[in-house]
Simulated scan of single mutants.
Amino acid sequence: MSRAITRAQLDKVVRSITKFYPQKYADKSWDNTGLLIDCSTAQATTANPTVKTKVLLTVDLTKSVAQEAVDANCNVIIAYHPFIFPSWSRLSPHTNPQHETAIKLIQYGISVYCPHTAVDAARGGVNDWLVKGLNNGENVTKSYALETVSGETDDLIGYGRFVELSKDISLQQIVENVKRALRIPHIQVASGASPSTWNRLMIKKVAVCAGSGSGVFKQLNEDVDLYYTGEMSHHEVLKWKEMGKTVIVCNHSNTERGFLRDVMHGLFQDEGYEVVVSRMDRDPLTVV
């Protein structure tokens, strides 16, 4: 049975999302953000007159996450990554599992909103959360977006972050801080120094970008000691290492997932919604 909420209820959810992560912050040149599936009804039905809004948060909207939303009686999914990407010209569930998932969601009346780069760009968004994880938000003397949003004067609204610390932190300490903040047991580090000397390799300036940092790091105008992101190409990692820099990569969505639990969950609870964070959502790559 469909558990679709009314248009007024869904409009309220969208207003809550865009209050924190305005649509104008999203990079529409390539990103597909916003309300991608609208299953709302014009008004409550006699068969289902008292449906309450229940939101599921996820980074990626996979088949298992969609089933989780069905089982948990959710009627809105906020999926950080765009579910329809880059675009669909038709639905073909027998050849594309995402299309099968879309049909299931529509059948159950579950709407989908995807904020993605609006969350990346926002003040207090995922990139600021990553900065905080470097050293619990302490001793940061300078931080600004590497790529600003057009028309915005706040230098903390934009993609990626340049961070300067008030005092040096050892690479060993940063590695421990990152793993603790992301709640993952392993990360990848490229450094000219051997791990046994990381406690003496001091970091002062850092370039940060959630997800894939390659394009955003090209906007960097200052020298840094460390590049911290989810993923980067082999040749880019090699280049920075050869230049005496350090690179930390953690798998793409591992740099984003904890933000749902640590920040977004509380924000939307405070807006009055019942909110659950997906337990089925995980990075497709596993370190073994």
Rank of each mutant, 00 (worst) to 15 (best):
S89I: 03
A69R: 03
I174N: 01
R123F: 14
P195Y: 15
I184T: 11
S191T: 13
T53V: 14
V70N: 01
Y227S: 01
A118S: 15
P86Y: 06
E138G: 01
M264V: 13
A66W: 05
V276G: 00
T255R: 04
R261G: 01
D168P: 02
V131Q: 06
F268K: 04
M232S: 06
K218M: 03
I37K: 03
K132E: 15
G272W: 10
C250G: 02
A121I: 07
T117C: 10
R123W: 14
E152H: 03
P22N: 14
G230C: 07
T33S: 15
P97Q: 07
D283H: 07
Q107C: 09
L182H: 05
L267D: 12
K239Q: 11
K204W: 08
C250H: 03
S16G: 08
V247P: 00
G160N: 00
L91Y: 14
E147M: 02
P195K: 09
Q98G: 07
T50K: 06
M1I: 10
Y25S: 02
K241I: 01
Y113H: 10
T117L: 12
P195E: 15
L182G: 00
K245H: 13
N139V: 07
M1G: 14
Q188K: 12
D120C: 08
V178E: 07
D225S: 02
W30C: 02
Q219T: 04
G151N: 03
S64F: 09
V216P: 02
P195W: 15
G124Q: 12
F85A: 00
I37Q: 04
R180E: 15
D27N: 13
H265Y: 12
T18M: 08
V140F: 15
P22G: 13
A181P: 05
N139Q: 14
Q188R: 13
A79V: 02
T50H: 11
R90W: 05
K28R: 09
L201N: 12
K205F: 12
A42K: 04
G213F: 14
E274H: 06
T41E: 09
V287G: 02
W240H: 08
D281Y: 06
N127L: 11
I103D: 04
P115W: 14
P93A: 11
E138K: 13
V189S: 04
N32H: 09
V249M: 11
F85Q: 00
S233T: 06
I203D: 09
K132W: 15
G158I: 03
T6L: 06
V287K: 05
I187M: 11
R7C: 02
F217N: 00
V276D: 00
V224Q: 05
W30K: 05
V119Y: 15
G266L: 12
